[in-house]
Simulated assay, not measured.
Amino acid sequence: MNALEADGLHTWYGKSHILHAVSLTVQEGEIVALLGRNGAGKTTTLRSLMGLTRARDGTVRIFDKTTTAWPPFRIAAAGVGYVPEGRRVFQGLTVEENLLVPLERPGPWTIETIYKLFPRLKERRANKGRQLSGGEQEMLAIARALMLNPKLLLLDEPSQGLAPLIVEEVFGVIAGTRSAGMSVLLVEQNVRAAVEIADTACVLDDGRVVFTGPASEFASDEARVRSLAGASVEDWDRPDRELENPG
């Protein structure tokens, strides 16, 4: 069974036609990296899959159920976790209070298992969201989604604004979810980091899918990777990587 199938999605914002017949598949236990330059339609694709910006045409199926017209809360209840761009943790709540916000669903992810996966969150469990660094806020956003015990995780730009060493840590966690049987659709500007952990790469350009294939195949095409990665390649390759300032 596929975790996710999108077929021929056309999505508009007002009079602007953003997605043009976008189709993609995420198999169970697979990580798919959705890549492309800024404005290519990556975030709109995630929003269409989650029912936040409904596609005008096309079909979305999640775990063999047609969810195209479902509201976001129903899609989440079907086992889909969503970590939006910008993290959106509750700044006035503690780490632990943030983790307790989602409705409890049965499964392996509990406060205890989250703290084993993210020891830094355990150390800062009494700190307010506003007191966390960007990397810690991203970890908290992912952890909060895991507390729903999803079978499919949608992540929008988890590396945004993070120092390279923190990116490696966050992406190691994402890769670890696959070993737990979770499926992941990852939108990411840091192409190098994404293709290192992904099974499949899907590239958007101007709202159209222009490449779908093994991530290793895409990663081997240096010119193509650099054309998408831009400055993030230089950031990822920097020899003087430093930990993010926790302030």
Rank of each mutant, 00 (worst) to 15 (best):
N2W: 14
L4D: 02
D7E: 15
D7P: 11
D7Y: 14
Y13F: 06
K15V: 09
S16G: 15
H17V: 04
H17A: 12
H20L: 09
A21P: 13
T25N: 09
V26L: 14
Q27S: 14
E28D: 10
E28Y: 08
E30H: 08
V32G: 03
L35M: 10
G39L: 12
G41H: 10
T44C: 04
T45H: 08
L46T: 00
L46W: 14
R47F: 07
R47A: 12
R47P: 05
S48Q: 11
L52W: 11
T53E: 15
R54T: 11
A55S: 10
R56G: 11
D64A: 12
K65N: 09
K65H: 12
A69G: 12
A69L: 12
A69W: 15
F73H: 09
R74H: 10
R74S: 15
R74E: 09
R74P: 13
R74A: 14
A77I: 14
G81M: 04
P84Q: 07
E85S: 08
E85D: 06
G86Q: 03
G86K: 00
R87C: 01
R88Y: 05
V89C: 11
F90P: 01
F90R: 00
G92A: 05
T94H: 12
L99S: 05
L99F: 07
L100Q: 03
L100V: 04
L100P: 02
P102A: 07
L103R: 14
P106K: 13
P106G: 06
G107T: 07
W109N: 00
T110S: 06
T110V: 07
I111N: 02
Y115V: 03
F118Y: 01
P119V: 01
R124A: 09
R124I: 06
A126K: 09
A126E: 09
A126Y: 12
N127L: 09
R130A: 12
S133N: 05
G135P: 06
G135D: 04
Q137C: 00
L140H: 07
I142C: 01
A143M: 01
R144E: 09
A145D: 03
M147R: 03
L148A: 05
L148F: 05
P150K: 07
K151R: 07
L152K: 01
L154H: 02
L154T: 04
L155Q: 08
E157K: 08
P158V: 14
P158R: 08
S159L: 05
L162D: 03
P164A: 10
L165I: 15
V167N: 00
E169M: 15
V170M: 00
G172W: 08
A175H: 02
T177C: 14
S179R: 05
S179I: 15
A180L: 08
S183Y: 02
V184E: 00
L185D: 00
Q189C: 11
V191W: 03
I197Y: 06
I197D: 01
I197S: 04
D199P: 03
T200K: 09
C202S: 02
C202Y: 05
V203L: 03
L204R: 10
L204D: 00
D206L: 15
D206Y: 15
V209R: 00
G213Q: 15
P214Y: 12
A215S: 03
A215P: 02
A215W: 03
S216L: 12
F218M: 03
F218C: 02
A219K: 07
S220W: 05
S220C: 05
E222A: 14
A223F: 15
S227P: 11
S227C: 14
L228Y: 03
L228Q: 06
A231I: 15
E242S: 07
L243H: 13
L243W: 13
N245Y: 09
